[in-house]
């Protein structure tokens, strides 16, 4: 699903969820906090709010956060003709705060929970006021981060997909090597997964990426199921992709038989995992343009397949 890392609607949503855990309050908050002292009057807030274009501010006394006052408090005072009362009398005293090192998901939840517009941000140690955060700050912070990541991915993709044009040589081949751990079913498929991502970055056509990924996955499965481990070597050239799988496992006694759909020597536990029905090698053959298997019983197997990149060839 994350095939292209392009930010389509679905991906963006989870990316944002991910970022809300990754980003800290300190990454998105406003550092320069406008504060007031409790001895000022409500009337004086007017100028402060107007010039700074803000709608609320922490009340600080001798460096200590003692309350918060917002434009709503201001309006209430205006309605009741209490413009000259002191801020200390009208402010909210029990201030809800956030720590600078909390992930912004905490901030998102607190905004939901309390329905207020802003939280002063304090240091966990010492409680010093270091910033203020609004929903707007969170949105801005997320968008900025998304943009940066999107740019980086675009640059990666651009560089990767132009690699062959940038290299001057009589022939170019990009070799990717993967180690496959035998009998480890939880890791099985990781090589194919990594390869798929890499191929997309290289700008290879989606249907070819798919065929290569399926062939690699089946080859990887064979190595995991039947051997103690092996190697996958993928050579990407301008005209073709060559996938080689090598192992020092038991070997295949009769390759022709092994290529028959449905022929299998896999044990029951492999079948329980959804494989071992004798479709592996036939699947690889169907997905690739050329296949060659060399195997010696007791020595190991060498599987070589080629997928042509230029379909007209």
């Amino acid at each position: 699903m994350k095939k292209t890392v392009k930010l389509d609607k679905d991906t963006k949503y989870t990316k944002i969820q991910e970022l809300t855990y990754e980003l800290k309050v300190s990454n998105v908050m406003t550092n320069k906090v406008v504060t007031v002292t409790p001895g000022k009057t409500i009337y004086e807030l007017r100028e402060l709010f107007r010039t700074n274009r803000i709608s609320g501010t922490p009340v600080v006394d001798k460096g200590k956060l003692i309350g918060i006052i917002s434009i709503e408090d201001f309006i209430k005072c205006l309605a009741q003709g209490e413009m000259h009362t002191l801020i200390s009398e009208k402010m909210t005293k029990r201030v809800k705060t956030l720590y600078a090192d909390e992930p912004i998901i905490h901030a998102v939840r607190k905004f939901d929970q309390y329905g207020i517009g802003r939280f002063p941000v304090i240091e966990r140690e010492g409680g010093k006021l270091v910033g203020i955060i609004t929903k707007g700050d969170i949105i801005k912070g997320l968008l900025k981060k998304l943009e940066i990541e999107y740019h980086q991915e675009e640059i990666h993709r651009y560089r990767a997909s132009h690699i062959f044009e940038d290299i001057i040589a009589d022939s170019t081949s990009l070799i990717l090597k993967y180690n496959i751990v035998g009998k480890d079913f939880n890791k099985a498929g990781e090589c194919a997964s990594g390869l798929k991502k890499t191929f997309y970055r290289l700008g290879i056509q989606p249907d070819i990426v798919r065929r290569a990924a399926i062939a690699t996955y089946e080859a990887e499965m064979n190595i995991v199921v039947f051997t103690e481990g092996g190697r996958l070597t993928v050579s990407v050239e301008p005209q073709q992709i060559k996938i080689e799988a090598d192992d020092s496992g038991p070997g295949i006694p009769d390759i022709k038989q092994a290529m028959q759909p449905g022929f299998s020597t896999a044990s029951e536990w492999v079948r329980e995992l959804g494989f071992g029905a004798g479709m592996g090698l036939p699947n690889i053959k169907n997905c690739t343009d050329k296949i060659n298997i060399e195997s010696k019983v007791g020595k190991g197997t060498h599987l070589e397949t080629i997928i042509y990149l230029n379909n007209n060839a």
Partner: peptide, 11 residues
């Protein structure tokens, strides 16, 4: 098992 997810990812 997890191979269901791997398979889904590949195709």
């Amino acid at each position: 098992n997890s191979q269901v997810i791997r398979t889904a990812e590949i195709v």
